[in-house]
Amino acid sequence: MRPATTNVKTLKIDGRDLSGRQEETILEVARQNGIFIPRLCEMEGLTDVGACRMCLVEIKGQNRLLPACVTAVEEGMEVTTDSERLQNYRRMILELLFTERNHVCSVCVSNGHCEMQMLAQRLGITHVHFPYRYPKEEVDASHDRFVIDHNRCILCTRCVRVCDEIEGAHTWDITGRGIDAQVITDLNEPWGSSETCTGCGKCVHVCPTGALFEKGRSVAEMLKRRQFLPYLTMMREENE
């Protein structure tokens, strides 16, 4: 028997015997061990919200599917990260997201570098079997350097979190609810006239799709640089 004070948990993910610290999530342990679990809203360095539901996994003995990004590892847990049901549900999420707004890859600045597009390719999505909604969404190009194109937003709220938690500006937030939810700057003012925005561009680089991009980038030119986030978090932790 292990002493009760231990904070190391041993578990099985996809049949492999692994271990993690008790505060770690299934997703973190899987990532450290090279096991791929798809996700769209989770990002290393930001708090997890469990919103996109891409990372749902099956846990033996549990009826419910649980999001790997917010579920802490437990002793003796047996996790399945890939099954036919999970694949179906993940495809369903992507299909719903693709039909929710106007995601047209061929004219998108992030074509070829988009996280959603990459997941869709990986899961073998060639078409959707729900009708498109074609909502009229706005493009706000009032900021000097950046643009938000709501047509490509999937409401992952990474921009909201990075702005609040890392930059400390809290320029972004969500307004409305349900299908009408939107990310907004300040109190739903044009980004360009936002008084809180520091122009740091972190939101642009954490955005998984082409919803946030730098001005002057044409189709497929918007490469996002994410390395700053783990680095910043690490440096801050060291300073504390």
Partner: peptide, 9 residues
């Protein structure tokens, strides 16, 4: 509320 995809979309 619109937070998670299955319920929202």
């Amino acid at each position: 509320c619109g937070k998670c995809v299955p319920c929202r979309v």
